[in-house]
Design a protein around this nucleic acid. Sequence first.
DNA 1: AATTATGGCAACCGCCCTTTG
DNA 2: ACAAAGGGCGGTTGCCATAAT
Length: 221
Amino acid sequence: MGKPGRDKQAKNQGAWSKQEDQKLIDYIRKHGEGCWSYLPQAAGLLRCGKSCRLRWINYLRPDLKRGNFAEDEEDLIIKLHALLGNRWSLIAGRLPGRTDNEVKNYWNSHLRRKLINMGVDPNNHRLRQNLLRPHNPPNPASASSSGLQIQAIQKPTKPHVDKEQVSDALSCVENDPCALPDLNLDLTASFHYPSIPHVEGNPKDSRPLDIAPSSTLLLFQ
DNA sequence: AATTATGGCAACCGCCCTTTG
DNA sequence: ACAAAGGGCGGTTGCCATAAT
């Protein structure tokens, strides 16, 4: 294919206008989500298909929750991030009405800092070494602010994993339920597009879910 | 009141994977 | 088997609002 993200007809960039939003909404209400590369032309939008897709998924979809994250959503994001890493689409799939972009932004702007304040390395979800020393312990009050308790773990984590590792990790969880005592996560793909007209089945939706390894994760109780 | 710093979020970029012919 | 096209994803950027000075 040609250079990705480059639609030759696309002219508009930057923020979407109300008119553009309405065109996109109207088109998708009428025809459903189909071929994104064809959509701009059909809907009369001077945007690239990717831009339309992103605008719809992240902003215009009728089932989006928006607004502040609840505390249980925060907890879930932290737990899932510990399990999955920066796989925002998978994490968002477990949060009805939330998008990967929203979860990613919330992580980067709120939760990362929160974990750091708790003395936890947001990259590997382990207690930072310097904070384990007696003269500089993590603040227990802040650490329990979201109802989380933390156990330090020893082995380093690998940020990115391949699919075989992922399935190994899943079987590890299955074989050893004590590994993740209280997560109780049903890690099957879950998508929430209840009000979108279904035009054609998307084969990608049925692809197997891949899960990051858990053996070196910080454990939450 | 004006200026600067910071945070939050929407949107874009570019890579990678899957599908199709 | 291969290449091209489409779509999805995570990372990054840039704009705007608010806080601090």
